[in-house]
Simulated assay, not measured.
Amino acid sequence: MGDAGLWVAVLTGGTAVIASWVTSRGHTQAARLQAEVAAATQEEARRRETRRASYLAFIEQAHLMGVEYRKTPPLLEIEDPEHRRLRLEEHRERLREVFGPFRHRCQVVALDGPSMTVDAGHRVFVTSRTVYMTLGDIAAGICEPSAYFQAIDDYWTSMSEFVEAVRQEGA
């Protein structure tokens, strides 16, 4: 009977060790899973915040372009074609200076955003280029000053579409 008691004690002890090991392993796996979920959640939050910051920076740069565009109408009213050409060329030079940071922000949006937002940002970029090229055509006498107003309307429409795309994305 002494041997039977020893076997029961060994079996009970072994069962307790195995149960402890299984429980410990389960807790370890649960903790690992919880850590992975927390890390993924943090990464998604960081990614969302980065995307939001890039969108805000792009919108800010687009509005800085708009500040320069608002200086255009008085230049278009200049009667003397040569004087208007010179002033428009000076204006286009200022636009090129503002365009660099604008282009950079557009490229960041293209890296960070989903396709709908990237496409909307690209349209803003294209319409901004159209405004610039239209001003060059007006300066060269290729088109009438009224062409500017259609180009600038397209620019602001594309900006509104970009903001709406960002809003729909939920960033």
Results as ranks from 00 to 15, higher is better:
I59S: 07
E43D: 11
F99R: 09
G26S: 07
R46K: 12
S24F: 13
G113C: 13
A62F: 02
Y69M: 13
E77T: 07
G113A: 15
R51A: 15
E49K: 08
E36I: 10
F58V: 01
R70I: 08
H122K: 12
A39P: 01
R92K: 09
I138G: 02
A19F: 09
V118N: 00
Q29V: 15
A35M: 05
L75F: 03
E68T: 12
V124R: 00
R25G: 02
T117P: 00
T50D: 10
I138C: 05
E82H: 09
P74R: 02
D80C: 04
G66T: 09
E68D: 12
V22K: 06
L135G: 04
R123Q: 13
M65T: 07
R129H: 12
S128C: 15
A35N: 13
E93T: 12
L75I: 08
A120K: 01
A62M: 08
G113W: 00
R92I: 13
Q61L: 04
V118R: 08
D112S: 12
R85P: 03
F125C: 01
S54Q: 10
M65K: 04
Y55Q: 04
E44T: 12
H83R: 14
T41H: 08
C106E: 06
A40H: 09
A19T: 11
T41M: 05
V67E: 13
V67N: 12
S20N: 06
A110L: 11
R32M: 14
E97L: 13
Y69D: 07
H27L: 15
V124M: 05
A19P: 02
P101R: 04
L86H: 07
V22D: 02
Q107R: 10
P101F: 05
L88K: 06
I59C: 03
C106M: 08
H104C: 00
V67A: 11
L86M: 08
R84W: 07
R46C: 05
E77P: 00
T50H: 10
H122Q: 14
R92G: 12
E79T: 15
M65V: 13
T23I: 14
I59P: 00
A62V: 05
R129A: 12
Q61D: 11
E68S: 11
